[in-house]
Nucleic acid binder design. Structure first.
Length: 684
RNA sequence: GCGCCCGUAGCUCAGUCCGGAUAGAGCGUUAGCCUCCGGAGCUAAAGGUCGCGCGUUCGAAUCGCGCCGGGCGCACCA
């Protein structure tokens, strides 16, 4: 038998209340709101309907509620309905049977029709990832995990802009500043993480590029004539078949591989890496171009400052009303195509509406980047097949990609406008339904507090020192161009270092065999990943994270390790029971009719709401509610085992009840941690 | 200028979608708890004009309008 959810009781109870209202007062309510009250002592399900009736009936809510409480026909499983507060109907469940049923396995979500494509990460493959990129990837990954829990088929795409300005700038730096002028020389620089000048970085090529990219930015600013490098390089990359294009290919391949490793060790995997170079090769844009032109929505400007450009007319759309210049340029007057234009073609492809497809090849990631070693990659990530679009000779046996029924694009809020343009592009082509199912999962950026920037300057050098005017701001945006930011791998390593110290302190004096040190290493990594992922998830998505080192590396209180600690302690309790020869599994029969303490009961209700929480998180795209829910549950459990000892409890019935609570908690917390991508340490 | 987001305890944030019971956490502060399933934990205390004003309502942190402060966006960048 499957574990029940509160929804199983909500609907019948709402019906019963509605019936009572109709019979007593002749009023037909279209809906009755049932909610979980904030405090369990007030009832398991609260129904504020009496307040709504107070006005039409011109009577006190309390009196109405009293009448309703007497008139409601209690559905099965509801022990009583009584009035509390100013006029709430509070329904209490039959606790014993509910708890016994909860011991059953959670019902797997029924498979849903259609496929959802989630695009996330999308880091320009020209430098190491920073923690802003990490927020994107973690949000995207938890979105994917939640959708899968709810029964959706999901395809994860990580788009690579391998022919863009950012890659071009790094290539220009390689060629003009570092004297790396051949693809062979580039490959050597990548392999050795060293430039011919001797500059090197033990964390790998992506780290070298971080500094080089900043250097190029400085050069452009200092000597404006060097800015011509960008256009030349960009042009060479787009044309292909040149040494410059081959250098660019090697750079973007190496850096995106480093990104895969960075994300991989945090448990983040991808199904497909679509490459912009393949969108160009496959002429996706010309297909989209013809359709947009034929639809009349895109026109060639013949006068004004946009003369010679193909623009998407958006003035008629209410979303764009009030803008000074609502039209969006898709093809520049020099004939080159904007990113947004390519994105429209890509979005059409995601829905299977383009009438063209990529070729695909299986990628064998090497998972090592200088900052990351292959052993750090969790087996689940390593075993996950990764495909990318192929330049030529695709694998005929590749799976089918795209053809989504719904698409989520995980992109920060600053790109809200181009995302709207993409959606509008679909709409003007007559794909209104697909436009409605194109969702921009927008979130705020990770910025640096002046304090964090000072810490960076202490740790990594004076180039992180903020200008006096930036010092006065509440936070400053990270900038790859300026080289200002906390690199993802650096933060992970600071966390790992800290978690190793904590573990060493706690395991002092224990045997130091190879097995023990391996276990300690595994646990330290689990804790570092848990802390990092939780930190990026706990804030609401519209909240700017003003990054602060002390907060980010904390392992106490509202943190990932707090969640991990709760499951480790639960397992210790089960172990202790086994040691004492006591039952380690609860007896469902012993739960019925038992007197349930409110705090135990409150935990069960919370534990029973994992799926419901995931539903709400998806509906609102507010994933921090999942983190909060897990924290609340862990907190309840930590309080519970302090107040209600299990192994030491002499009364078998009481012990059985507590054991049931602990088991149900353990199971649901495991599901939540999986949902959040937070690994379970063996011990802490 | 127009648009979006943020403003809740000393600090960092939940709660706002869909109005309702005594506005909650974490950190920090103060005072406690390891002969009792490990203290990355637990107990308790102190700490609030929910940015301001007006309105709607029996009832507003929550809805509407107007302000104030901060951030972001409004490219032939992405």
């Amino acid at each position: 038998m499957n574990a029940p959810t509160l929804d199983a009781f909500r609907t019948p109870l709402a019906d019963a209340v509605r019936d009572a209202v109709r019979d007593l007062y002749g009023i037909a309510l279209d809906r009755v709101v049932l909610e979980r009250p904030p405090r369990v002592a007030l009832g398991d399900l609260a129904c504020p309907v009496a307040f709504d009736l107070a006005k039409p009936l011109k009577r006190a809510p309390r009196a109405i509620a009293e009448e309703l409480a007497r008139a409601v026909r209690r559905p099965p499983g509801i022990a009583e309905v009584k009035v509390e507060g100013g006029g709430y109907l509070n329904a209490r469940l039959e606790r014993g049977p509910f708890a016994a049923a909860l011991l059953g396995a959670p019902a797997p979500a029924p498979a849903r029709d259609g496929k959802i494509v989630v695009e996330h990460t999308n880091i320009n493959p020209n430098k190491a990832a920073h923690i802003g990129h990490l927020r994107n990837a973690v949000l995207g990954d938890v979105l994917v995990r939640s959708l899968r829990l709810l029964g959706h088929e999901v395809e994860v795409q990580n788009y690579l802009d391998d022919t863009g300005v950012q890659v071009a700038d790094v290539v220009a730096g390689l060629v003009h500043l570092e004297g790396v002028t051949t693809a062979d020389a580039a490959r050597r620089a990548i392999r050795e993480a060293r430039f011919p000048s001797g500059t090197s970085n033990p964390k790998g090529f992506a780290y070298l590029c971080w500094d080089l990219y900043a250097e190029v930015g400085k050069t452009y600013a200092a000597k404006p004539e060097t800015q011509a490098w960008r256009a030349e390089t960009l042009h060479a990359i787009e044309a292909g078949d040149s040494e410059t294009a081959r250098i660019a290919a090697a750079v973007s391949e190496a850096v995106s591989s480093a990104h895969l490793a960075t994300m991989g060790r945090l448990g983040i995997a991808y199904d497909l890496l679509p490459r912009e170079s393949d969108i160009l090769r496959k002429k996706f844009w010309s297909r989209a171009f013809e359709r947009l032109r034929d639809s009349g929505a895109m026109v060639l400007e013949t006068e004004g400052k946009q003369a010679g450009c193909w623009v998407l007319r958006l003035a008629g759309s209410e979303e764009f009303a009030g803008m000074e210049e609502p039209d969006k340029i898709l093809v520049r007057s020099n004939g080159t195509v904007t990113y947004t234009a390519k994105d429209i073609a890509y979005q059409l492809w995601k829905f299977g509406l383009l009438g063209a497809d990529f070729d695909y090849e299986r990628l064998a990631p090497d998972w090592s980047s200088g900052a990351v070693t292959p052993e750090e990659i969790p087996p689940a990530v390593r075993a996950h097949p990764v495909w990318r679009t192929a330049h030529e000779d695709g694998d005929p046996a590749s799976p089918s990609f795209g053809r989504a029924t719904r698409v989520y694009n995980v992109i920060d809020v600053r790109q809200a406008y181009p995302q709207k343009v993409v959606r509008e592009g679909l709409r003007v082509l007559g794909f209104a339904a697909e436009a409605d199912r194109s969702e921009h999962f927008s979130y705020e950026i990770v910025a640096l507090s002046p304090k964090a920037a000072r810490a960076l300057a202490e740790r990594f050098g004076e180039e992180y020192r903020l200008s006096p005017e930036d010092e006065k701001k509440p936070f400053v945006e990270m900038s790859g161009r300026k080289g200002l930011g906390v690199k993802a791998d650096d933060l992970y390593e600071i966390l790992l270092e800290r978690s190793r110290e904590e573990i060493a302190r706690r395991r002092e004096g224990e045997s130091e065999g190879a097995a023990a040190s391996q276990a300690a290493d595994r646990d330290a990594r689990a804790i570092a990943v848990g802390a990092l992922r939780y930190f990026l998830l706990k804030f609401g998505r519209n909240k700017v994270i003003a990054f602060d080192f002390d907060e980010a590396v904390s392992f106490e209180g509202d943190t990932g390790p707090y969640l991990q600690y709760s499951v480790v302690r639960a397992d210790n309790i089960f172990r202790k029971l086994a040691e004492r020869g006591l039952p380690v599994e609860p007896s469902p029969g012993g739960l019925a009719g038992a007197a349930w303490e409110d705090d135990l009961w409150s935990m069960l209700l919370d534990a029973a709401s994992t799926d419901e929480t995931a539903e709400r998180a998806i509906a609102s795209l507010e994933l921090s509610t999942l983190a909060r829910h897990a924290f609340t549950l862990a907190q309840a459990f930590n309080q519970f085992y302090h107040r209600h000892p299990i192994a030491a409890e002499p009364d078998a019935a009481v012990r059985n009840r507590r054991l049931a609570v602990a088991r149900i908690f353990r199971r649901e917390m495991a599901r939540l941690l999986e949902l959040l991508g937070i690994p379970e340490p063996g011990r802490m």
